Simulated assay, not measured.
Amino acid sequence: MNNQRLLNIQNGQNFRDLGGYETTNGHHVKWHKIIRSGSLANLNHHDLQLLANIPVTLDLDFRAPEEVKRSQDHVPNTATYHHLPVFKSDETDASHSDEEIADRMAQAGNGYRHMLDVYRRMATVETAKAAYQEMFRLLLENNDGATLFHCTAGKDRTGMGAFLILSALQVPMETIKQDYLLTNEATYDFRHNWLQMLRAEGESDTVVENRRALGSVSLDYLQQALTIIKNNFGDVDHYLTDYLQLTQGDLTDLRHQYLE
């Protein structure tokens, strides 16, 4: 199987392999072991077969219960499904219609401010803590095949998960940020067409800009989480051990399992 960052998924967004990234001590993340993505709800036969061929053996779903109920995953036949809701409801607005959040979108800057609050909460609320703790437990247990983790758009709850995993594997922060921003490139066509449609429907510049802020990632968003982590735990390493309660043995095992 080819080592490629962006997977050739036909009916899904933002499917990316985290393999190949170099760590601070010269190791590399193994290919075909850790995959981040958007929703699996619309995958076709080609997509499911591609994931089964890897093979994906764990499907970790970070979406809220109502998102799952509305659009259930199409799970590859090689994988076991686990629901790990980061929030009790979809605070990212990735699954909400324009009508559902119309009032919020009418005020300039609300999209940006909302995303800052989402990242603050992902770093602090108990549901997120429990979800990411379980993510690491399952990663440590998955000795065969790949772990795929996702939310709806594959950018925020999934982006936080990728940040935590790559940090635990000692991938440099600059590389982690580059992977995080790759969402904007991977979803460019979809977002561009969506925003053009909003303009064609007569939405104001304020609404379009707020929706752009909700539909993309920004280093400001990730920095919000990093600032919370630094202020409360000193650095990401202590966040992993003191907050998410990973032991040094867990970290050693994780690196042995996912690095080469």
Rank of each mutant, 00 (worst) to 15 (best):
N142W: 05
D73T: 07
V207M: 05
N77C: 03
T147M: 01
T57E: 03
L58C: 10
V75M: 02
A94Y: 07
R157T: 00
S218D: 15
A108E: 15
E134D: 11
G145F: 02
K230Q: 15
E134P: 03
S216C: 09
A186S: 15
H256Y: 15
T92W: 04
G249T: 14
S39L: 02
S167I: 03
R137D: 12
D144C: 04
Y132E: 03
G109P: 08
H114S: 10
L148I: 02
H46W: 08
T247P: 06
Q49H: 12
H192S: 12
T183R: 03
V217H: 00
R113F: 08
V171Q: 03
R212P: 03
D156A: 01
H256T: 12
W31H: 11
F190L: 13
G154D: 02
Y112F: 15
V68Y: 00
R36H: 05
W31R: 07
N184W: 07
R70V: 01
N14H: 05
E185Y: 11
E134F: 02
E91A: 04
L60F: 02
A108M: 11
E100Q: 15
S204D: 09
A79Y: 02
R157C: 01
E66A: 14
H82S: 08
E185I: 13
L164N: 04
P172G: 00
I34C: 07
D98I: 13
F233I: 04
S167H: 04
Q170V: 05
T92G: 06
H83Q: 13
A41Y: 03
A130F: 06
N110S: 14
H192I: 10
D250P: 03
V56H: 00
L50R: 05
L116C: 12
G159F: 00
N193Y: 09
K230S: 13
M1P: 10
A200T: 08
N53R: 11
Y21V: 04
Q223T: 14
F15Q: 03
L214R: 02
G26I: 01
L116S: 09
T127N: 11
T147P: 01
T78N: 00
L18D: 06
S216V: 13
H192G: 05
A106M: 15
I35A: 03
Q107N: 10
T183D: 07
D144N: 14
V125M: 09
D90T: 01
E209H: 10
T127Q: 12
G249N: 14
A168F: 04
L40N: 05
N231K: 12
Y239R: 08
N231G: 06
H150R: 01
T124H: 10
A108R: 10
K30G: 06
N143W: 03
A186E: 11
F87E: 00
Q10N: 13
F87R: 01
D117R: 12
L169Q: 07
Q245H: 14
Y180S: 11
D189I: 08
K177C: 13
V208W: 06
H28F: 15
F149V: 01
Y239D: 07
D253E: 14
L138V: 03
S37D: 04
L43C: 00
E201A: 14
M1K: 10
R104K: 15
E174G: 02
V207W: 02
T152N: 06
A186N: 15
H256G: 12
